[in-house]
């Protein structure tokens, strides 16, 4: 009887959790947005081309997107330099913290196998969870490096738990013309705004937003 109760309550919890996930994933952008003056952004910078692209997007955002929390892989010196150069070019009128740089272990080296990607992504969750829970961003903005996945999943978790409605914005790299990246394919399922930069991808992925080339 006790066992039955336990199984039943577990089943009920799982069912409620799944319902909540379903609700969260489908509520998305249908609600009219409340107006706001500030948006806290978590920006995931990758290496090389990814960082170049995401910094071009950051340059276009207004001062309302404050504070900006950058997440970079701990092996990535180049991105840090680009971020610091960009941030120091902005007017520093406020006394509040306008940006932070946060390092996490790299989750997927180029040409790493899928199975070891899964393991390193899971281990990256250990770092992503405390980081995203602490920063509580309004929006996670990312464009493809493997580190996006654990961070976006954590953002989603915050929403599922009802702690904060974290929006997930994904911009697929300009390099992707016909096929999505692995990260793109995963985050297509959970992102609120999923941008592609070639019409051939919009045709294949109906949820994708196509505004032409944006980087």
């Amino acid at each position: 009887m006790l066992l039955f109760g336990l199984v039943f309550s577990l089943f009920l919890t799982a069912l409620l959790f799944l319902l909540r996930v379903y609700f969260v994933l489908n509520s998305g952008s249908n609600h009219p947005p409340k107006t706001r003056s500030h948006v806290a952004v978590l920006v995931v910078a990758g290496s090389g081309g990814h960082t170049t692209e995401i910094m071009r997007l950051m340059e276009s955002l207004s001062a309302a997107y404050t504070p900006r929390h950058y997440v970079i892989a701990d092996t990535d010196k180049m991105s840090e330099e680009k971020i610091v150069a960009f941030e120091s070019s902005k007017p520093q009128s406020h006394t509040d913290v306008q940006f932070t740089i946060n390092r996490i272990p790299r989750s997927r080296e180029v040409a790493q196998s899928w199975s070891s990607s899964v393991v390193s992504t899971l281990s990256a969750l250990r770092y992503s969870l405390p980081l995203v829970f602490r920063l509580q961003p309004d929006v996670v903005l990312c464009n493809g490096p493997g580190t996006c996945v654990p961070l976006c999943i954590t953002g989603l978790l915050l929403r599922i738990l009802g702690i904060k409605k974290v929006g997930i914005v994904y911009v697929e790299s300009i390099c992707r013309v016909q096929t999505l990246s692995l990260t793109g394919r995963i985050l297509y399922l959970v992102s609120d705004y999923f941008f592609v930069q070639w019409s051939s991808l919009r045709d294949k992925y109906p949820k994708a937003i196509f505004l032409g080339r944006i980087v």
């Binding site: 340059e59 276009s60 955002l61 207004s62 080339r213 944006i214």
Partner: peptide, 10 residues
């Protein structure tokens, strides 16, 4: 590219 289009949309 036109990142401004992205910013306006967002």
């Amino acid at each position: 590219g036109q990142p401004k289009n992205f910013a306006n949309f967002l």
